[in-house]
Amino acid sequence: MADMNKMSLRVMRYNPERDDAPRMQGYDVPWDPSTSFLDALSYIKDTLDPSLSFRSSCRMAICGSCGVMINGVPKLACKTFLRDYPEGAAVEAMANFPVERDLVVDLTHFLEYIQTLKPYILGNQRRPEEGPNSQTPEQLAAFRKFSMCINCGLCYAACPQFGLNSGFLGPAALTLAQRYNLDSRDFGKAERMPHINKEKGGVWACTFVGYCSEVCPKHVDPASALQQCKVESALDFAAAVLNCTKKKEAGHGKQT
């Protein structure tokens, strides 16, 4: 390791008990073409500065724990390599989330929004003895892409609308809602639509910037899911207006 080339990384440090604001600290890290940013952060913690805090688990872009900003772009540290940053790089905590310490952010909002939208199969009465639900390849293809989300939160770090309004349910949660609304085994759309339609924080806070889809490490394409959500919400709006008109007509009929 001693004879390896070294790269200068600047890493965001923040201890809320001591610091007024986050600051950047420089570290020289040995690297070769296979060194990921997660390897570099682990090297810093193991050999240079044990006080550095960051989240990680699987090291293979499936757990979604190691989201950070690398040169201002949301990335998974395990899936991003030092070889692509020959000039060095700045590693910061994910944007748009409150920072707990160093690179660790508070994901509470994000996790609550996912729960709000009930991303699991609802209202399916089929019992185990009746065998599995069957689904055609077309029915699977309708939602499969949206089911690849690993809840890393990079799309929230990328979303300028979530940055402006933390009440926005956001890309990943709404994508999951659309994923289950599209699933032929699910009957829970009516429970999810009021949250998607709502004035504050529903899908209409999205302005189709599209950066969420650009940064998604699993190519989920949340921007496309949210556009589909908007079409659903617009149809739901039209249906509500028509129903309201029908109810009024019925009420009028009774009176006369």
Binding site: P194, H195, N197, K198, E199, W204, K230, S233, F237, A240
Partner: peptide, 15 residues
């Protein structure tokens, strides 16, 4: 569940 206020944005979005 408390009643969530529906957004009127679909009208403007369609236009």
């Amino acid at each position: 569940m408390k009643e969530l206020k529906r957004s009127n944005e679909p009208l403007f979005w369609l236009l």
